[in-house]
Design a protein around this nucleic acid. Structure first.
Lengths: 243, 243
DNA sequence: CAATGAATTTTGTGATCACAAACCAGGTGT
DNA sequence: ACACCTGGTTTGTGATCACAAAATTCATTG
C-alpha cells in the first residue's frame, strides 16, 4: 500500500460509496456523521471531503454541510460531452498501444459482464462495467488523463443507478463492447473512439432525459429509489461492504 | 464574496502563485512555510494543499512535503492532448453561443495583449492570455467543463514561463486570435476548435521540447530561471503582489 | 577524506478544543 | 392559519497540542 493515511482511507470509502451508488443524488452528509461511521476524528474527514468537493463529487454552500449534487438535465449533458471527448481520446490511444494480452483481458471482462447480467446482479454489473472501461483506458498509459476521467466518473456515479434495470437490458451493450475489442485488434483508433463515444452518448442521454431543469429526477422503477430511504441502513452499512 | 474561509484564501494565493509562474518546477514547499508566509495556522494550509495535490498542481510522496511536479516530455504531451480536446470543445461551444457584446470584449483583450507585448511586460502578458482564453471558454456557459480546464491550467502554469521570451515573439499569435474572433462572428464552431487546438499544440509542443524524459528542463534564457533562486524572495513576497 | 551511524531537528498527521454561524423548534402576536 | 421572533442545538472552521516518521547534522571510523 502506498498511502495508508486515514485521510486517504476516508476518501476511498466515500469514493467507493459514490461509485457503487450507495448515496442518492441530493443526499446530505455531515462531517460528524461520516467521522462516527468510520471511527475517526473530524480532521481526516474534512480533508477527504475537501478533495471530493474540489472534484465535484460533493457540493457545498459556504459554511454548510455537503451533499451529493443534484444535477440538471443541462449539467448531465455537459458531463456527457466532456466524457465523450476524454474517454474517446483514451480509447483512441488505447487502440494504438494495446497488445494481445491486454485485449484478451478485456475480452474476459466483457464475458463477465454478460454472465453477471444473466443473473441480474446489479452490484456486480456496476463493478464489471467500471473495470471494463478503466482497463481499456489504462492501456493508453496516460496517468493524468486517467485521473481526470476518474473525477468525471465520480460525478456521474450516483446517477448511474438510473440505468437499471431498463436501459441495461437493451441489446446494444454487448454489441458495442465487441466492436471495441475488434477495434483494438485492428489498431483502429478512430473506430475505438467512435464506439466509446456512442456508449457514453447513449447512457448519459438516457439519464439526462430522466432529469428536469431543477435537478429533480423521474424516479421510475429504478434501484436509485432505495438510496432515498435515509434511515434504512446503519451508518456503518453505508460505507463498508464485502468486495 | 461567496467563500471567505481561510482555506479558500490560502488556496487562491497558491493558485495565483502557480498561474503567474512564481513557483518553479520542482520547487519544494513545507506546510509551515506557507502557514508562516500567509499568517495562518496549519489547518487551512493542509486543506488547501490537499485540494491542489488532488488537482495535480502539487505532488507528494506519502508523509512528505509537497513540491511543484517535475514533468517529463511525455507528461507535457499528455497535457497537450487533454487540453486540445477540452479547450477545443469549449471553443466550439463558445462559437455557437457568443453574442456581439462578448465578441467585442474578446477583441478588447486581444488588443491589450498586443499592447502589453509591445512593452515586453511578461506579467501583464500572462494575465492577458489567461483572460482571453477563459473569457472565450466562459461563453460556452459550461461550468463543469470550465472547472476541469482550470485544473489543467494549474498543472501547466509553472511551465508557461518557458514560453518567454522566445516563443512569444513569434508572429503566429496575433493571427490565431484574429482567426478565433472571426470564427465566433461566423458562428463557425469547427474553425474555433481548430484555432484553439493549433494554439495549444504549438505552445505545449514547444515547452515539451525543452523537457527531457527525467523531468529536467533545458533552461535556456527563460525567465523561469529566476524561480530557481530559492532564497531570492522573502516568504511573503512569493505570494503577495499588486494586481 | 569519504562513508557511516547516532543524535537532533524538522515536518506531516490526527485528535481535541473553542467558537461563531446556521439550523430547528416552539411559542407569540397578528 | 401564518409570519416572525427566540432560545437551544447542531455543524463547519480554525488553532493548538502530541507524536511518529523522515530529514538533517555532525561526530566517528576506516
Amino acid at each position: 500500500m502506498s498511502d495508508t493515511s486515514l485521510r486517504t482511507q476516508v476518501y476511498d470509502s466515500l469514493r467507493q460509496a459514490l461509485t457503487t451508488g450507495r448515496f442518492a443524488p441530493g443526499q446530505k452528509l455531515t462531517f460528524r456523521f461520516i467521522a462516527g461511521a468510520l471511527g475517526v476524528s473530524l480532521t481526516p474527514v474534512r480533508e477527504a471531503l475537501g478533495r471530493l468537493v474540489a472534484e465535484g463529487a460533493f457540493e457545498t454552500q459556504p459554511n454548510r454541510s455537503v451533499r451529493v449534487p443534484l444535477m440538471t438535465r443541462a449539467r448531465i449533458m455537459e458531463l456527457r460531452d466532456i466524457r465523450m471527448a476524454l474517454e474517446g481520446l483514451a480509447a483512441a490511444k488505447a487502440a494504438l498501444a494495446a497488445d494481445r494480452r491486454q485485449v484478451a483481458e478485456l475480452r474476459r471482462i466483457a464475458l463477465a459482464i454478460v454472465a453477471a447480467r444473466r443473473q441480474a446482479d446489479t452490484t456486480a454489473d456496476r463493478r464489471n462495467i467500471r473495470e471494463f472501461h478503466f482497463t481499456l483506458y489504462g492501456m493508453a498509459d496516460q496517468p493524468t488523463l486517467l485521473r481526470v476521467i476518474e473525477g468525471l466518473w465520480l460525478q456521474t456515479g450516483p446517477y448511474m443507478n438510473l440505468l437499471y434495470p431498463d436501459f441495461i437490458s437493451r441489446p446494444h451493450g454487448p454489441q458495442g463492447r465487441a466492436n471495441i475489442i475488434r477495434a483494438l485488434q485492428a489498431r483502429d483508433a478512430a473506430a475505438a473512439r467512435r464506439e466509446i463515444e456512442n456508449d457514453i452518448d447513449r447512457a448519459l442521454s438516457y439519464v439526462a432525459d430522466l432529469a428536469d431543469d431543477d435537478g429533480n429526477i423521474a424516479l421510475a422503477k429504478s434501484t436509485a429509489a432505495v438510496g432515498r430511504r435515509r434511515g434504512a441502513a446503519t451508518a456503518a452499512q453505508q460505507f463498508n461492504y464485502a468486495p
